[in-house]
Computed example of a mutant assay.
Amino acid sequence: MARSSSGPVVAGLTAAALAVVGFLAFQASAAPDNPAKAGAAHSSPSGHPKDKGKGDGKGGPDGKDKASTAIPASSGSGLRVVYALKAKRVWLVGENEQATRTFEVAPSSVSPEPGTYQVPPRGRSPQLLGSDGVQVEHVVQFHIGEGGIVFGFSAALDGSTPDPNATKKTGAVREQRADGAAMWKFATTGTKVVVVP
């Protein structure tokens, strides 16, 4: 019975091919634009990728382009909180016109009208029961609308988000807990809150 000398060669080529395929799969999974990786590393209240950490407002570690996280041009000037309704995004903007943090939020069933508001005296609460019955922390209110609807930023202790389709009219703007803590430090009494479309 004759023995083939090609056996070790074929086995060596197969092993090399598998190594190359494995390496390429690893590179694809580590790519910054991989949606599965971005969603796991930077989840938001709405379930979309976000810039979780501090940034300059011109893009973040999640690979978003500069335009998607740039401070809205029509948001005024000076130290302020900027809330973009359509983008469901907030920027904490310092006196130097640089965003110290930007993140996505989850709004409730009612949104405030675009305009400039201010955190009022007694508009901050470390913890309370939200208008939707959920225990929340780091509450920063900025407006009371028609019908007594209170608009404010908060983070649910259980991590839940409000139902935007709820029949009950509520004005909570929910953040993740780390973002809520940053908002609490930043938006003291008298801080301007600019709501843009």
Rank of each mutant, 00 (worst) to 15 (best):
V193T: 06
T69K: 07
Q27F: 05
G39L: 13
Q118K: 11
A36M: 10
E113G: 02
S109C: 06
V173G: 04
R101M: 11
V193E: 01
I71Q: 04
A70D: 02
G133E: 08
P121I: 02
E95R: 13
H42W: 15
R174I: 06
F23K: 08
D33K: 15
R101Q: 10
G59D: 03
K50T: 14
S29Q: 09
G22L: 06
G59E: 03
V196E: 11
A187V: 07
T191I: 02
P49F: 08
V196T: 12
W184L: 09
L13G: 01
T100V: 09
G94V: 05
Q135S: 08
V82Y: 05
K58R: 12
H143T: 00
D132F: 10
P121T: 07
G115A: 06
L157E: 15
R122C: 04
P197G: 10
P126K: 08
S108A: 15
R80E: 00
D51S: 08
K50R: 08
S154G: 01
G22Y: 06
Q127P: 12
S75V: 03
K37R: 15
Y83P: 01
G180L: 00
P72L: 01
A36H: 10
L85T: 04
V134R: 10
K86G: 15
V110P: 07
E95P: 08
P45W: 12
S46H: 14
S125T: 08
D51G: 08
S160V: 07
P197D: 12
S154F: 05
K86I: 08
S125Q: 11
K192E: 07
S108K: 14
V9H: 07
L157V: 14
H42Q: 11
E97D: 05
R3E: 14
L128Q: 14
A155N: 09
F153N: 03
T102Q: 12
M183E: 02
V10S: 11
G63A: 08
F26T: 07
P107S: 10
V82I: 04
P162Q: 07
G123T: 15
A99Q: 15
A70C: 00
V110R: 12
V110H: 13
G53H: 04
G130P: 02
S5A: 08
